[in-house]
Design a protein around this nucleic acid. Structure first.
Lengths: 245, 245
DNA sequence: CCAAAAGTGTTATGAGTACACCCATGC
DNA sequence: GCATGGGTGTACTCATAACACTTTTGG
């Protein structure tokens, strides 16, 4: 069963991928490239998020999930709808107008923006049909449309969210070291954390399960591995109403 | 300058009003009422949020602001875009179909939902052209469309938000007592707070300014009045990166 | 003088913060 | 044996939580 596109409503996906090796939070972007007919001029040469029209018969969540699967082949990732963007001028700078000229987009398109969390290594970028690439959030390339704004707002939301919910583990492999978790926090939040205090805090959590395993194939002292138990987290979790204003 | 409606995109406004007297958080709703042509049957009889199409040349924020002004006459209120709702079936239950039959709505309309914060007393409901009324969030009437869901999600967001940002003061008059603030928190969060601990905590904040004034015309011991200084709050505020997972 | 709400203090506990060195391993 | 990152302990401070009675006022 096919379904028609809604021409003025899209979803855009900010795909955050954490790279354990470089300790950097990345965003997956696709390339926009267009030359003039005589090939003498480069008309468009930048990057954008992936997104697509919402289809008539699907929910917004399904739409985002579909777009992500097209791009990465992955499903069942952490997903959050974080904001709608719909300024009348969001697609109307010169380059963007050239780009959408031959496309089905309305000039006034509202986009529902989602972000997804995963590990960079989980996406196979070879033969990716969109020519997708990872870019560190701290060093974004030139971006089309209002996508820089969308990424920035996604990142802000992620920063807030990772302080109160255990989503950091969505960015890490199933088995991780305490220092991996610390690195991830430091990279996302842009802060330094005291290692001793952090260890103590994390190891004391009942849902951080120590494994009888160590790292393997590292060139220095291998670290102890842990895993995160979502089940235990949900059982142990009690909403705390600490008013911190 | 007039502007066309975008037929499949709307904003809906969850207007939260706090009533200091009843100590209840309320939502402002308008009535839907429709009889059959022979007047023998009531076809639609429930309540909904206010909302309207987004116009071609306005931003989403402007759209929400416009709708709120139409309803309440007020501007410059605390406003938050909190979620987009766009399930294909969100307007398609039987009653809703009857209601929108003669309206310009597409059946597949995405709505961008906002909530606003104010004091119930600030809205003059006499002669309100939409027949708007306050309903306590704890006792909502029958609601059309997916508006119950929208209100519930707005309330959840408000609960989270009021723990980390000083938006509680948007719900209170400029001059308030410590107990007013406590009551507001208790009502919104549905919890009990120890008065002594709460007082100490609040009074110690530099941005809670004690006034040389007391309540006036109350039937018991009048309480000391305070005000909230947004300026001082913003100067004093330091983002704390407390990881509380 | 009475009813009602305002206002007040102390202690115990737990969490956060600051801080520097030894240890285990691979090479 | 050495370089590298892993791992450890203590003391201080501050915020929270628990808890019950007195004070002030209007009527």
């Amino acid at each position: 069963m096919t379904s028609k596109e809604i021409l003025n409503i899209s979803v855009d996906c900010v795909v955050f991928g954490y790279d354990l090796n470089t300790k950097a939070l990345n965003v997956l972007l696709i390339k926009r490239y267009l030359e003039s007919e005589d090939k003498k001029q480069i008309l468009v040469n930048d990057h954008v998020l992936t997104g697509y029209h919402v289809l008539e018969n699907e929910t917004l969540d399904q739409s985002a999930t579909r777009v992500l699967k097209e791009l990465t082949g992955l499903t069942n990732l952490y997903k959050k709808q974080f904001k709608a963007f719909g300024n009348p001028d969001r697609l109307t700078n010169e380059t963007d107008l050239i780009w959408i000229k031959d496309q089905k987009f309305d000039k006034r398109t509202i986009t529902i923006a989602y972000y997804f969390l995963l590990k960079t290594e989980d996406v196979d970028l070879k033969n990716n049909k969109y020519d997708a690439k990872w870019f560190p959030t701290k060093n974004l390339p030139k971006l089309g449309f209002d996508h820089e704004k969308i990424i920035k707002e996604a990142l802000e939301d992620l920063k807030t969210k990772c302080l109160s919910e255990p989503i950091i583990f969505e960015l890490l492999p199933d088995k991780f070291t305490i220092n991996d978790v610390q690195d991830a926090y430091q990279s996302i939040l842009g802060i330094e954390i005291d290692n001793r205090n952090f260890r103590r805090k994390l190891i004391n959590k009942k849902y951080i399960i120590p494994l009888d395993e160590k790292q393997f194939g590292v060139s220095k002292k291998p670290a102890k591995l842990y895993m995160f138990s979502k089940d235990i987290y949900e059982k142990v979790f009690k909403k705390n109403y600490l008013i911190s204003i």
